[in-house]
Amino acid sequence: MSTMTLIRPEAARTAVEPAPRFTDLLAAEWIKLRSLRSTYWVLALASLVAIAVNINAVHSDLTYIDHPPARLPGFPPFRYDPLYHGLSDISCYLMTIAAGSLGAITVFGEYTTGLIRTTFAAVPDRRGVIAAKVLLIGGITALAGAVVSAVSFFTTNAMLASRHVGLSITEGVCLRAVLAYAAIVPVCALIGMALGALLRHATASIVSLVLLFFILPLMFGGDRYRWLHEIGSHLPLATVGRLTYNPDSSTTTSTWAPSVLDSWITMGVWAAVAVAVTVVVVRRRDV
């Protein structure tokens, strides 16, 4: 006598369609990013412009190195700082806003087009989807930051070697400066993802990035009030400024400047909080 075994439709579907692996989620996110050519072209263009800005800054300084300005009474003699000019703030700002915008677009772009519904219908595991986005965007922006930082440092110091003011990567704080200059790029991309998940609007996300990266530091500067300075020194771009500071230069730091370890921790906290906010918001809010 034969018996019949009843199989639930859910079980049959599971047997036919296995749960996607994390590598599958990464591949899917890569296809989404690659299909939007404007996004990675913007990052690539920003990287090239950032390198060009650093190289041009040092090239323009060669005249001043050959003919240094006259020493003023009461001031120390002129001393050129290859780190300050070779890893300039302008290039750093350009890369951070490009990376932050890329991170925000990868999140709010799917909500705007409605693609996020299809994504979560195919993969209900929202944490897995966000983890794939974080790893992909973080990896791409980290690569871009590393390229800009390394190419800028080695190229500019090769130019300065003939003037005997170039630095080696093993000298002083050079390695730390190069790493920090590269690390801030993926951190800002993750912050952009968090703002994109919170606001889900293109203009609001980009404006929020500009406020956080460039406007807030203007409100928390100076040495008059320590509590204001403490807040300002723990903003994202302030960390890279402290980590790329060259103590052998003629410039000085603030009275209440954070330690190097404190700046590294602050940068890591910004990245961790950004990822946590993105995961929590995407999991708990409806699409």
Rank of each mutant, 00 (worst) to 15 (best):
A121Q: 13
C174K: 00
T170I: 12
S149P: 08
L160Y: 03
V123P: 11
G145S: 03
H164G: 12
A131I: 09
S149K: 10
P124N: 10
A158W: 14
F153H: 02
T155N: 10
F120W: 13
L175S: 07
A146K: 08
L135S: 12
A131E: 06
L135G: 15
R126K: 15
G172Y: 00
A161I: 01
A131P: 04
V173W: 00
D125E: 05
V147S: 11
T156Y: 10
R176E: 13
F153Q: 01
G139R: 04
T170N: 05
L136A: 07
G166F: 05
G145A: 01
L136V: 08
A142T: 09
V147C: 08
V165Q: 05
A142C: 10
A150S: 15
F154T: 13
N157E: 01
V129Q: 09
A146F: 14
S162C: 03
R127M: 15
V165F: 10
T141V: 06
R163N: 13
A144P: 11
E171R: 01
H164N: 13
F153L: 05
T155E: 05
S149D: 08
I169N: 01
F154A: 14
G138F: 03
A158V: 02
T170E: 01
I169V: 15
F154W: 15
A142P: 10
A158H: 12
A150N: 05
A142H: 04
V134G: 08
V123Y: 10
G139L: 04
A144N: 09
I140K: 02
R126S: 11
T156E: 02
T156S: 12
T155G: 06
I140A: 12
A131S: 13
L175E: 03
S168C: 01
I137S: 04
T141G: 03
G166M: 04
V123F: 07
T156V: 05
G145M: 04
S168N: 14
T156I: 10
A122Y: 12
P124Q: 07
T156M: 04
V151H: 09
H164D: 15
L136F: 12
S162A: 15
N157T: 03
A161R: 15
T141Y: 09
K133S: 06
H164Y: 11
A131N: 12
R163V: 02
K133G: 05
G139S: 10
A161M: 12
